[in-house]
Design a protein around this nucleic acid. Structure first.
Length: 569
RNA sequence: CGGGACGUGGCGCAGACUGGUAGCGCGCACCCUUGGGGUGGGUGAGGUCGCAGGUUCAAAUCCUGUCGUUCCGACCA
């Protein structure tokens, strides 16, 4: 491609809407443009990258048995009412009406549609298993679009759905996808980790999220510093290390603590460490109220609490609800004196070992000292409720847990029969018995993947594309197109490289060298070939974007050099 | 949805407090200059100051509303 005719609007300055590096660079380097919040156009270079990623995904999906299809973005409301998600999906679902006032959605995902296809087209075990996938635009009315293409309302996703006859079959389909994802992200040049994730209300044994490691990631990953364990915060299990205190329980004591509401204030006011206090938090889980107790220096994880009760909806009780249910003001809630109150008390195991702790007294401006579980109050159930912390033991090997931030770029999920039962997607087995298909679903955020790669591969001058998804492999630059020798050599090299099968962006613009170099760094192609002062001698400069290493190469050795150098990138 | 910030040529911003003919840098067009890290100079095009209403002799500026963008907290690829 000749750069003189390429639509490549680069910007010298950072558009004010962009905060993070990948967003800024993709805008500045002319890869994307925003239309409205969370909705982007892909310009020629951006679209080329998208196609590269898409192609890698397609190859690996096909290789692991997937079959590509294409499903509609517009879907009838009836389908969503069948699975209950018309209500359950909430405001994130983009809804619209046609001229006859019939309701539709813009698909945020395609379980409904693919399941309807499967139930119509598959009725025998002989036709299973099947894995159908598509690469298509999805719509989610995100509360807060952010970070450019990383969290957008319209985005490109690869979504795959597997249908099996047995649980074991699902396990195999799942593993095939897990392996495919590992290959895909590796090929994209991404630094990632597959982490154990919470299956949520859908249940199922395993679900993994593929996380691109990055400081700007919105999720925290707990990983082990000595083994390969990695999990999401809500999934990372805290290993209970029982260490009963030797302290003798003392007499309970009511203390005046005016205005002291938070654990920090409390610890400061009474001059006790936070780990000697008990945090009492009231939650509403579906229809019941639950008081969760946790050591003052720990952090409650509401997903763990939700899972403990197998609840669908969890919310923190409002100030009013706290008053109604417990009869005590927010900030001074405690587990004592709850007899007759309609509340279930649960606690993290760490609370069990506490002796002479501090809790809220259940009345304004008072706390209780020397409170001991068992003696002063009882707990209906103990269970892991807290966030794992850095330094905690790894649940797999006992090593030390560390934290990292990640961008979720992929997710593999065992759905089971959730959709097939509701939508009656069944098949007849060998005995002629009707059974629901066992499903899995597997997503990759294609556009997000591109941004995540940029986030991981850039410097102060611009993007540094991995060769596998770079819009072009080689950036050929004619330093001065008015110089006969340079222009002639550059033109002939352009032809030579194209003939040799390279993807070349040829900067033949009548611009100054500085402009061309700045643009080249910004755009970030893996290898730059500069035709300059030594053109007459048939010598060009080759520079690797990533390392900055450059060497002068004689044109008759150029193809050999390219072959050797590009194979290493 | 709650809290904050910002809307002025394509991009980045000033002007607003203290109303009085809309400015700067970059980019863009043309000419000269320069020619390996955004060269220097000249000429020029381009803006109903987000939108609507109000106050005023007069509104980018003050007031009200509204829309948009963005940042900070609960969901997801």
């Amino acid at each position: 491609m000749r750069q003189s005719s390429l639509f490549l609007p680069t910007l010298r300055e950072v558009p004010s809407e962009a905060e993070i590096a990948s967003h800024q660079l993709m805008l500045r380097a002319g890869f994307i443009r925003q239309l409205v919040s969370g909705v982007y156009s892909y310009l020629p270079l951006g679209y080329r990258v998208l196609r590269k990623v898409t192609q890698i995904v397609r190859e690996e999906m096909d290789r692991s048995g997937g079959q590509e299809i294409s499903m509609p973005a517009i879907q009838p409301a009836e389908l969503w009412q069948e699975t209950g998600r018309w209500e359950a999906y909430g405001p994130e679902l983009m809804r619209l009406k046609d001229r006859h006032d019939r309701s539709f959605v813009l698909g945020p995902t395609h379980e409904e549609v693919v399941t309807s296809i499967a139930r119509d087209g598959i009725n025998s075990y002989k036709k299973l298993p099947v894995n159908l996938y598509q690469i298509q635009t999805k719509y989610r009315d995100e509360v807060r679009p952010r970070f450019g293409v990383i969290r957008s309302r319209e985005f490109i996703m690869k979504d795959a759905y597997s249908f099996d006859t047995t649980r074991e079959g699902l396990d195999r389909s799942y593993q095939a996808m897990y392996d495919a994802y590992t290959r895909i992200f590796t090929r994209c040049g991404m630094d990632f980790r597959a982490v154990d994730a919470d299956a949520g209300a859908i249940g199922g044994k395993g679900t993994h999220e593929f996380m691109a490691l990055s400081e700007i990631g919105e999720d925290t990953i707990a990983y082990c510093s000595s083994c390969n364990y990695a999990a999401n915060l809500e999934k990372a299990e805290v290993v209970y290390q029982g260490q009963p205190s030797e302290e003798a329980p003392a007499e309970r004591e009511r203390v005046h603590t005016p205005g002291v509401k938070t654990i920090q204030q409390l610890a400061d006011f009474l001059a006790v460490p936070a780990e000697k206090t008990i945090k009492s938090l009231l939650f509403k889980l579906d229809q019941q109220y639950v008081l969760a107790l946790i050591r003052g220096d720990h952090e409650l994880n509401d997903v763990k609490l939700k899972n403990m009760f197998d609840a669908n909806v969890i919310s923190m009780a409002s100030e009013q609800e706290v008053k109604e249910v417990l009869g005590s003001p927010v900030g001074f809630v405690g587990p004592i004196g709850l007899e007759g109150k309609k509340v279930t008390v649960v606690a993290d195991p760490a609370v069990k070992d506490m002796v002479n702790a501090v809790t809220g007294a259940g009345e304004v401006d008072y706390h209780l000292r020397n409170v001991t579980p068992g003696k002063d109050f009882s707990v209906q159930q103990y269970g892991d409720l807290r966030n794992i912390q850095e330094g905690d033991p790894c649940p797999q090997c006992g090593g030390e847990v560390r934290f990292a931030r990640g961008i979720e770029v992929g997710h593999v999920f065992k759905l089971g029969t959730r959709y097939s039962e509701k939508m009656k997607a069944t098949f007849l087995d060998e005995q002629g018995k009707e059974k629901p298909m066992i499903m899995g679903c597997y997503g990759i955020g294609i556009s997000r993947t591109v941004a995540a790669v940029v986030e991981q591969n850039h410097d102060e001058n611009g993007i540094i594309w991995p060769k596998s998804i770079a819009p072009f492999e080689v950036h050929l630059i004619a330093v001065n197109v008015k110089n006969e020798d340079q222009l002639k050599l550059a033109e002939s090299l352009y032809e030579t490289l194209l003939a040799a099968g390279y993807e070349v962006l040829y900067d033949d613009r009548p611009e100054r060298a500085g402009v061309k170099f700045k643009d080249a760094d910004l755009v970030g192609l893996p290898l730059r070939i500069t035709v300059g002062a030594k053109a007459a001698e048939g010598v060009v400069e080759c520079k690797v974007r990533k390392t900055g290493e450059s060497e002068e190469i004689s044109t008759d050795q150029l193809l050999d050099y390219l072959k050797a150098t590009l194979s290493k990138l």
